[in-house]
Structure formats: C-alpha cells, structure tokens
Design a protein around this nucleic acid. Structure first.
Lengths: 210, 210
DNA sequence: GGGCTTTCGCTACGACCCGTAGCGTAATGC
DNA sequence: GCATTACGCTACGGGTCGTAGCGAAAGCCC
C-alpha cells in the first residue's frame, strides 16, 4: 500500500489482499473530534487518537499523512450535516441557514478544527486544496440553492447572465460574519442577531441604519 | 520575578534590579513573525524563536507563558498599523478599510497567526480575553469612527439611542467577510471585490441583486 | 565605590511526541 | 493453499518541551 487516504473507495476495485476496515476509519475520525474538544489543536497527538480509537498508531499513519489531513476530514464529516429547508422567503431562508451554521460552530470540535486547519493551510498548498474540495465547495450549494429559490419567488433580480461572482461574495459575507461573530468576537449568534444581520444583508446599511 | 509579561511598563516603578531589555522584547516579537512565515504555527518552536532573536530560550519563557501568548502579542503589533483616513463618503471609507485590512491579511505572518491563535482560544479562556483586549477591542475603533463620520454627513440614520449592538454587527460583517474571502475561500480581495462588497453592504441584496 | 536585586546567557535534564521500521498474524481474492 | 494487503505490537533515533541551576552583567540606592 501507499495510497495514504481513508478507506473511502471501498476496496478500490481490482485489489487483492485484506481490505481496509471502514470501521477503523469511523473510529479514528470520531476519536479525532473527541480529542480536539478536550485537548485543542496543539494538544492533540496522533498517538492519543489511535489509543482512543482502539487502533494502532501505525494504522492512522497508513491512512493520513499527518494531523492536518486527519482533522480536515474529521471536520468535513461535521459540515455535511448542513441542509437548507425551504422556509418560504429569502429572509427566512437566510435566518435559517445562519442559525444552523451557528449551531454547528458552537460545537467545540467544529470551531477548534476549522480555525486550526485554516491556519495550517496558510503555508500548505495541498491542504488548501483539500479544504476547498471537502468543505468550502460542498457548502456553497446552500447559497446556490437559496439564490435559486429567491429568484423563482421574484425576491431578487434574475441576473442569469452573471451568476458566478455574486455566489462567492454572498457565501463569504454570510459564513464570514457568523464565523467572526462566534470565534473572534466570541459572542453568541441568537435569533435576534440573525434577524438583525439578515436585515442589513437584505436592505443595506443606508436603510437599516448604522 | 514572576510577572510573566513583556517589559512593557518600562521598569514598573519602584522596582530594583536589572530592568528587562526592551530591545529583547522587540527582537523576540520580530523573530516570532519571521518564524511564523517560514514554519507556520505547528512548525514554530520557542527554541527557534530564541535563536533567531539572539536571545536565550529561558529569556522567552520568562516573559511569555507559551506559544499562544507570544504569537498573540506578535499579531497585535501588526494590527495596530491599521488606520482610517477620511475619504469623504461612507462608501469610500468602507472600501478603504476593506482594502487596508485585506493587505494586512495578505501578509503571511498575519494570516497564519490570526487563525492559529483563534483556534487555540477556542479551548483557552485566558487566551480569549487576551485576544479581545489586544486585538478585537482595539480595532473596533475603526467602525466607531467610520459610523460617526457617516452620521455627521447624514448618510445613515443617527440612532444615538442604541449605538452599541450595530457596531459589533457591522464589525463582524466587514472583518468576517474579508477574513473568510482571504483565508477560507483563498481568493484575493481586490478593488473590484471591495466595490461589490460595499454595494451589497450599503444597498442590500434586494437592490444589489443576488 | 559597595551592596542589593533582578535579568541575562548558558548548560543540562527528564519527559513526551514524532514518524518509521520490522515482526508475526489476520483477512481477503484467486 | 497461495499471494497480497492490512492489522496490532514493539522498538527506535531524533526533536521539542519547560524547568533548574550556575556565574556574570546591569541597573538602583546608600
């Protein structure tokens, strides 16, 4: 072996020998989330993760190159829980996704892992790619879906000629505000804050007031 | 000694003995920023910082409790460069501060340090306080100042009855969007993006389009 | 100058984690 | 049964951690 990647592909077809244990994958990822909560990024050791998962340390190193990759994958499993139920209006949809995202970020494992991984990625190109692939790209679907619904309802103009850039902008504004509020300013995202934020986002500062 | 804090107070009054070298403080902080760029958060060691600074390792430990505190202080010196020149309109002021903040975040030392410190802070109450005191609190002055000017110009309503919450909200929206764009989405904040962001912030999605 | 106090650079230390190698064993496909 | 791969286990050299102890240097105060 030398693939250095989680079992994932379920015995990659045309392979002989003992297949990797999917149960071990799940146990390692769960142990990683658990250890992150207790120890934080710099306190987390792969030896400890292996111990918690009931797995040999070498088994962890066979599948992930290091701490960064392991934590990124553990984080991705948490983000995939996000969904966007149709609440009937753009305002309600935004408030809903803001609160849902905030609840996700309230989980200690999520906040610790997200920031730590992004920090490591600043000087690791491969890790940046992994984050874009497994987290950012997967979550933009929420913005695309919400925008599509709002256009169908006639709540926002339908600039079907140039849809790309605005998606990214809106994604950064929403996700960035929630992350900053929660992790940098260290204050809660409650229904009141979500409502005020949505008002500013929909109506702008000139109307909503400074 | 047991103060465990940078020289700062310049021989804290009524102290005898050899005073701490302020030059050593500056050298250590500069070495920390330099090492962060080259090695990243997890690669940075206090022993290496001491070597770069031309200082004994023990001297570093006498002044800072650990990596987190040291990097937080090194980061604060970078953030203090931010200023808010009056550009004549709210739109121009926002675009100006967005671009200035983005240039700050483009520096490898800043982006690495900010995310790493926030990650550590998620499980370290004392560190959260240090960040609020030395970074977040100091930078909110930019929003306060910009808001005051806009109200004087009559560009936004003057809700002098309840100024508090909106300041925090706007701060999180602006800083969060720039940070998320730069560090999570890993795309540049140029004049075009700053203009589009400012339009959304001022006029809202309903007008600016989705 | 003499004495007191604190910081300085240096060295050494036990403890821990790293990431890998080597072994024998277990679980698959042919 | 045989080849192949993953598994658990042990052991290893190398590096960092944070602290302790030392003599020397640099300030204050008399």
């Amino acid at each position: 072996m030398q693939s250095r990647t989680p079992a994932g592909g379920r015995t990659p077809a045309g392979r002989t020998g003992r297949p990797r244990s999917a149960a071990a994958d799940a146990a390692i990822l769960a142990a990683t989330r658990e250890a992150l909560v207790e120890l934080g990024w710099s306190g987390l050791t792969l030896g400890d993760v292996a111990l918690r998962a009931g797995v040999a340390k070498t088994t962890v190193y066979r599948r992930w190159q290091g701490k960064s990759e392991l934590v990124t994958d553990a984080l991705a499993t948490l983000f995939d829980e996000l969904v966007l139920p149709d609440r009937g209006s753009l305002r309600a949809d935004i408030e809903g996704v803001v609160l849902q995202f905030a609840r996700l970020l309230e989980q200690p494992a999520t906040k610790t892992a997200l920031m730590a991984v992004v920090a490591e990625a600043t000087h690791d190109e491969a890790l940046r790619g992994r984050i874009r692939e497994k987290i950012v790209g997967r979550q933009k679907r929420l913005v695309v879906e919400g925008r599509r619904r709002a256009q169908q309802r006639g709540e926002i103009p339908d600039d079907s000629t140039d849809p790309g850039p605005q998606i990214d902008l809106i994604f950064d504004v929403i996700a960035g505000a929630v992350v900053h509020r929660t992790l940098v300013s260290c204050e809660p995202v409650d229904t009141d804050w979500a409502a005020r934020f949505t008002t500013v986002l929909l109506d702008g500062l000139a109307v909503a007031g400074g």
